[in-house]
Nucleic acid binder design. Structure first.
Length: 432
DNA sequence: GAGTTTGAAACT
DNA sequence: CAGTTTCAAACTC
């Protein structure tokens, strides 16, 4: 058994099945054809600016799950949400209604696994697979639906040249798990963008679809998929000794670390908020370069894991251990219910990425900054198109209005996001 | 950079 | 479905 050659592609099992399942898988493959750009008609899907493109779905999955962003039909789930500043252009794009997006070429499939370091967007991440031929989910590229490009992998089949093998691998993978390429982190059925929009409170429901099964990491290391995605563990998780829950001291210790003055950090967080990275199909956090000491960014313990699940019991941290009286509804010391709105079925609520960075008192300052900036912007554009000026003025007015004491007193965490967004927008306009 | 740890994915 | 093995990323030194 020659080691790296060990596994066959397709695996024997699949080969055997392949005849019987041929037509079925063919059908699947059609939808999964990364190279074609022919999209099934999913126009009923709602293009959600808040939702990253999930995956190609099997027919079954397609039926049972909310439809992803059209683009997703070709782009597999991005592992990471883009958090860089999003120029208005992009915003507009996001707002565009469903439209079939056709990849220019296979190479376009790769999702910008934006890796931000100091605010600099980086290229798609590179895998280092040696034994999987990059044809299994072990491979991040494959798992995210992208071709390997510039990776350090060995014997890679995840490329155009080996499209056939790749396709078979995709089929096999889907056979095992029809949702294999679907986002692991996604808004819950109750937490689509609609919810968020409707509430106006920036609520969003995010959790790991399968949940993690961590045993030793306390769910506070990137081994943990939830942690890596910057979300709290949920009732889906079966982890042990979980510390990735709202209120966890260990967890808080992580992000009360050193990102204090890191503008990039703030910007990223702001962008995440802006782009709606949270709840996206992709991870909400930048994949940050590997080798990081200490668990740097915890961009927002973005999600608020509300304590009760539908059955009235809470899991957080409990997936953990001693059979806590789960039925007795352990008073959840954590759920700092500040904004902990009880959301019925969904126990996760959106929480500002900046909630722990920007304090209530900072809001006023932010307002001031924005007022000044918008004022400058207004001047800058005063001799330009009236519409532009008006726009800025509008923003300014909006801001001023929102700066009232009353507003500040009843501020919500999401205000920080909005303020930063406005600042970014105004700055962008000024730069232009 | 090498070695270890970890947990998801794959396999039995 | 549970247990085991394989794998590659995360992490440590």
């Amino acid at each position: 058994m020659g080691e790296s050659e060990g596994s066959e592609f397709p695996p024997k099992k699949q080969q055997q099945q392949s005849e019987n399942a041929y037509f079925q898988t063919k059908k699947l493959a059609r939808q999964l054809d990364f190279t074609q750009g022919v999209l099934p008609d999913h126009t009923q899907s709602q293009p959600s600016p808040l939702q990253k493109p999930p995956l190609l779905v099997s027919p079954a999955a397609a039926q049972s799950q909310p439809q992803p962003h059209p683009q997703s039909q070709l782009q597999l789930q991005p592992q990471v949400a883009e958090i860089q500043v999003v120029p208005q252009q992009q915003t507009q794009q996001q707002q565009q209604p469903a439209r079939a997006v056709k990849p220019e070429s296979p190479k376009s499939i790769p999702i910008p696994n934006t890796e931000l370091k100091d605010g600099t967007p980086k290229k798609q991440r590179q895998c280092n697979c040696k034994h999987s031929r990059c044809l299994k989910l072990y491979c991040e590229c494959f798992a995210s639906g992208t071709y390997c490009d510039g990776c350090n992998c060995v014997n890679c089949y995840n490329n155009v040249e080996n499209e056939a093998a790749r396709r078979e691998a995709v089929e096999a993978t889907l056979e095992r798990n029809p949702n294999a390429f679907r986002p692991k982190i996604a808004s819950s059925p109750h937490g689509t963008r609609d919810s968020r929009e409707e509430t106006g409170d920036g609520l969003v429901f995010v959790k790991h679809n399968k949940g993690c099964h961590c045993k030793k990491s306390g769910c506070l290391k990137k081994y943990c998929e939830c942690f890596q995605a910057n979300i709290l563990c949920s009732e889906n998780c079966k982890c042990m000794d979980c510390k990735n829950f709202e209120g966890s001291e260990e967890r808080q210790a992580l992000f009360h670390g050193d990102h204090g003055n890191n503008m990039a950090y703030i910007q990223q967080a702001a962008n995440a908020a802006i782009t709606g990275a949270i709840g996206s199909s992709g991870y909400a956090s930048p994949p940050v370069s590997r080798k990081r000491k200490g668990q740097e960014l915890f961009f927002g313990h973005t999600v608020k894991d509300q304590s009760f699940d539908r059955l009235g019991h809470f899991q957080q941290g409990s997936h953990t251990r001693p059979p806590a009286p789960s039925s007795s509804l352990p008073s959840n010391p954590i759920a700092r219910a500040g904004n902990a709105i009880t959301l019925g079925p969904s126990k996760i609520t959106y929480r500002s990425l900046l909630a722990d960075i920007i304090q209530p008192q900072d809001l006023k300052e932010l307002c001031s900054v924005l007022v000044v900036l918008s004022g400058e912007a207004a001047k800058t554009f005063s001799d330009q198109r009236n519409s532009m000026e008006k726009r800025v003025e509008d923003q300014r007015e909006t801001l001023l209005a929102s700066s009232t004491q009353e507003r500040l007193q009843s501020h919500k965490e999401s205000d920080a996001d909005k303020l930063l967004l406005m600042i970014v927008l105004v700055q962008t306009m000024l730069i232009k």
